[in-house]
Design a protein around this nucleic acid. Structure first.
Lengths: 146, 146
DNA sequence: GGATATAGTTTACTCGATCAATCATTTAGC
DNA sequence: GCTAAATGATTGATCGAGTAAACTATATCC
């Protein structure tokens, strides 16, 4: 088989390449705010949850990643003055996250960018096909090992 | 909107999460050989092209990445004793890549793992749906900016 | 022959992710 | 009530992959 045909049929490579592409697109879109893709998503998540503050563990679960990873990303957002950690009054082990005013403005820009991208996607492949494709990709994630 | 609904409809996040999942699956499958996902793909690419040796620039194009990136990965594969660089007799600027015997055996394991994964995917979502989903994902890559 | 283009490497850097160790607090068991 | 175990989160070290720019060496074109 030719490698090109192999890659073309491979969900793993197709998904990986698309992921890289989206990283570049997001980095480009958020370059003014100096955010990465994941940072933008976290900011959007905190915004959507407002005014209810959100816990890091909730974010880790939502984004299917580790707490350590979220902790690092939040530290980065905090260093940029976008997010604030406050001790959770109901559980002093944990923290609650809230947007600072610049973070709120930044989140709005991020969400607007995601929305524009979403419209571009739906225009490109159609809403129904997009939904089906995402369902298929999600289903692949249940293949846990080779 | 809830962040969960936002993420569910977002191709960018769905694709990114799946990409991370595949990274973990591949790292797990290739752990005995100490290969990453991309290293495995490169090895498979060189194997598929054999006996015709392959140029790094060809790999960079095939995998939609930079030459620098390929150069790093090849160096890593070379350090593991899997791949060999030879000066291209027809163009002394370039190199030709070939598998050393351990690299060949390793490539066979890698390809077998990819094939098992592929069968798992097709069993999970069906061959037709898989093809459609990949076509949709590829189409999204033509959205160049937000 | 000299300017320019090309192949590849190198260096430094970023981002996202993971792991193990650690700390503080909460909960559970006795 | 007090200790032991579980939990929420941070830290620090490390990794893989990717990028960009500078650089070397060779090839090509006029």
């Amino acid at each position: 088989m030719r490698i090109e045909a192999f890659l073309r049929e491979s969900p793993m490579f197709t998904v990986k390449r698309a992921s890289r592409h989206f990283d570049r697109v997001a980095a480009d879109a958020f370059s003014a705010d100096g955010l990465g893709f994941m940072e933008g998503l976290l900011l959007a998540a905190i915004f959507f949850e407002a005014p209810r503050p959100i816990k890091p563990s909730h974010l880790a679960e939502t984004f299917a990643t580790t707490r350590g990873n979220v902790s690092h990303a939040i530290s980065s957002l905090e260093a940029k003055g976008l997010v604030q950690r406050k001790i959770d009054p109901s559980d002093a082990r944990g923290y609650l996250l809230a947007l600072k005013p610049p973070g709120k403005r930044c989140a709005l820009r991020v969400i607007a960018a995601f929305d524009r991208m979403q419209r571009g996607f739906e225009q490109k492949v159609g809403r129904a096909a997009l939904t089906e494709a995402l369902d298929a990709i999600r289903a692949l994630e249940s293949c846990k090992h080779i």
